[in-house]
């Protein structure tokens, strides 16, 4: 299977084969990351710039580590503090960076579609590290790898995604990815946190946790943003926790082997009970973080191979 994309902007353009290619390579990098010497030269000589227009600690650290373990020269730019504040447009910022000849550009932006726009204006490979409410492809890929390693397969599973679906790019990318891999997806949450037109997504929608979690193999919790808690979307934190927070009682409706996932950072006692999150028999939250580095290494490696092939005049590679 040939991975023939110039950028990783979302899950939507990827085929089943593309997804499997990334996950297979990520499995190898996961093994590398557990060795004493965690180093490869796959990205040696290449420059990776992380541009985060929105605060992030984990994702940025994960991309930085992934790049460094593959031997790239990694630079972090905190865009919130820089030229954007001085009134420069996104495209001008992109053109400026482009002139510095980066090879890999990792971008997070608070507006949907901003990373696509940027990718049209630069010559390097662009990885979307989250744009608005649109997509967060590496998160969905690391979730998929975690599921595949825990369950032994990534198809014909019953998966519940719970919480703030409407504002979540993680949910969107996961719905697309898990759908492409032929799983049954349930969305569970209050109707105020469900996106419009959800009936057309090929998913089952529940507003009750007990029904939504019944017999599922995977429970994916989403982070509830602080700004949604003030009565606009839900009445209060405590009512939300009572009705939608994952605790032992609600989890008992799921399959006995069900795993619990969370993209982090968690609000303990809001969407998830602390004991569930820490239960090593159920929670794979730490594995998700570990797989994050491996998946990002795999994605950057594949994109860099295409860059090199293109530079070598092998014209087949384009997306």
């Amino acid at each position: 299977m040939v991975f023939d994309h110039a950028h990783l902007l979302g899950i939507e353009p990827l085929s089943q084969g593309d997804i499997t290619t990334i996950l297979d390579l990520a499995d190898q990098y996961a093994d590398l990351n557990r060795r004493d010497v965690k180093h490869s030269d796959a990205l040696a000589g290449l420059t990776q710039i992380n541009m985060f227009f929105e605060n992030s600690t984990r994702t940025q650290a994960s991309f930085e580590l992934a790049g460094k373990r593959l031997g790239a020269d990694v630079m972090n730019m905190a865009m919130q503090a820089s030229s954007i504040k001085k009134g420069e447009t996104l495209i001008d910022t992109a053109m400026t960076l482009n002139a510095m000849h980066p090879d890999l550009l990792v971008v997070r932006h608070p507006q949907s579609g901003a990373v696509d726009l940027l990718a049209q204006k630069v010559n390097c490979a662009v990885l979307n590290a989250g744009d608005g409410r649109h997509e967060h492809p590496t998160q969905a890929l690391l979730d998929a790898l975690t599921i595949r390693r825990a369950k032994g397969r990534l198809h014909r599973l019953n998966i519940a995604i719970c919480g703030d679906i409407a504002h979540s790019r993680v949910a969107r990318s996961n719905i697309i990815l898990l759908g492409k891999m032929e799983n049954r997806i349930r969305l569970v949450g209050p109707p105020t946190l469900m996106p419009s037109g959800i009936d057309a997504f090929g998913v089952e929608v529940y507003d009750n946790m007990e029904e939504g979690l019944r017999d599922v193999d995977v429970v994916m919790m989403l982070r509830l943003q602080r700004e949604r808690m003030d009565g606009g979307f839900i009445p209060s934190e405590r009512e939300y926790y009572f009705r939608y927070g994952l605790d032992a009682e609600k989890l008992s409706f799921a399959s006995p082997e069900a795993i619990v996932m969370h993209p982090g950072p968690m609000n303990r006692g809001v969407e998830i009970d602390g004991e569930i999150a820490d239960d090593i028999n159920r929670s794979v939250i730490q594995e998700q973080v570990e797989m994050g580095v491996a998946v990002r290494m795999a994605a950057m490696d594949l994109l860099a191979r295409n860059l090199r092939a293109r530079a070598a005049g092998n014209g087949e590679v384009m997306a």
């Binding site: 939507e12 579609g113 608005g132 409410r133 419009s196 997504f201």
Partner: peptide
């Protein structure tokens, strides 16, 4: 406009 398309693209939408 709210609906499947706006939700997929993550755009703030109106009914």
């Amino acid at each position: 406009t709210s609906g499947k398309f706006a939700s997929l693209y993550g755009l703030p939408a109106v009914s």
